[in-house]
Computed example of a mutant assay.
Amino acid sequence: MRHVTVATDFSARSQRALRRAGLIARTTGCAITLVHVVDDEQPDSLIAVERDEAVRIMAGLTATTAELRDVRCEALVVTGEAFQGILRAAESRGSDLIVMGPHRRQLLRDIFVGTTVERVIRSGPFPVLMVNGPVAGPHVRPLAAIDLSESSARAVRTALALGLVAADMLAVVHAFTAAGKGKLAAVDVPGAVLGDYVARERDQVRRELSVFLEASRLTVAETAMHLVEDVPFDAIGRVAGELGADLVIVGTHGRGALARLLLGSVAEAVLRSLDIDVLAVPPLRASEAPEG
């Protein structure tokens, strides 16, 4: 990894993001751009005052944040809407990753347009690390949500390629549905029979998951595969809690017009509900896809 953009609004939430970005830079040797966006829908005189104040505050942050010691870090102030400014900064620096804190929620606005984090993920090509948890060291208990889609496999490969996680520490969670369970329960089959049916379904899903991971060039220990009979978000939350996961890796789906309105129900639920760090990775853009 060569470069990380980290966004700050000078809140405690974004300070965690800066510290996490510093740790990533110390581990990977990448450079950091710390970006703050000033709202441009106000008089020029106020914009100038806010820019000057932002420069002053950012100089203090880069000088006093312990995780930035010996890290190449520049401060950048831009104007515009928050998510657009962050994306412009990341693009201008050729960033491999955007790091952000969870933004304060505004209920009605979030319903229609989403949080700043979500808008950055929807609108840009960059992996986004949302920092929710305490910053005590590198992530050591990563959990990847795998739904047998190329999007979920790409998310894991991206996390590994960026050096955010180690392959031998990775666990995966896959939610499945035993399709005939409801019908069997409706005719009052014995519990043992129902249990055997679910076990067979689980074994079949495990084989499918193993084949998918191998085809996706991902090596995951058998003991690190967690198959849960549940809806995806509940399965992710349950396994994350059981493992004490400190990072959840998810892929987002689609790049068409609808995708700019929806991240995908599972990715959105994970971003909005979990209190641990989340890495959200968009699918490959058409311009990046290999020919043939």
Score class of each variant (00 low, 15 high):
Ala59Val: 11
Arg56Thr: 15
Gly60Asn: 10
Val38Met: 13
Ala48His: 03
Thr62Gly: 05
Glu41Gln: 04
Asp44Tyr: 01
Ala31Glu: 11
Glu67Met: 11
Asp52Ile: 09
Asp44Val: 14
Ala63Pro: 07
Asp39Thr: 09
Thr64Asp: 10
Asp44Glu: 15
Leu61Met: 15
Gly60Met: 10
Thr33Arg: 14
Asp44Ile: 12
Leu61Lys: 09
Arg56Ala: 13
Asp44Trp: 08
Asp52Ser: 13
Ala63Ser: 11
Thr62Pro: 00
Thr33Gly: 12
Val38Glu: 05
Pro43Cys: 09
Val55Lys: 03
Pro43Val: 08
Arg51Pro: 02
Glu67Arg: 01
Ala66Gly: 02
Leu34Pro: 03
Cys30Gln: 02
Gln42His: 04
Val49Glu: 11
Ala54Glu: 05
Ala54Pro: 06
Arg26Trp: 03
Asp52Thr: 14
Glu67Pro: 10
Val38Asp: 04
Thr28Asp: 00
Leu34Glu: 05
Leu46Glu: 14
Arg51Lys: 15
Asp40Phe: 04
Ala54Lys: 06
Arg51Val: 14
Met58Gln: 11
Thr62Arg: 13
Ala31Cys: 05
Ala63Thr: 10
Thr28Trp: 05
Ala66Met: 01
Ala31Tyr: 02
Pro43Trp: 03
His36Val: 07
Ala31Pro: 02
Glu41Met: 01
Arg56Phe: 11
Asp39Phe: 07
Ala59Asp: 15
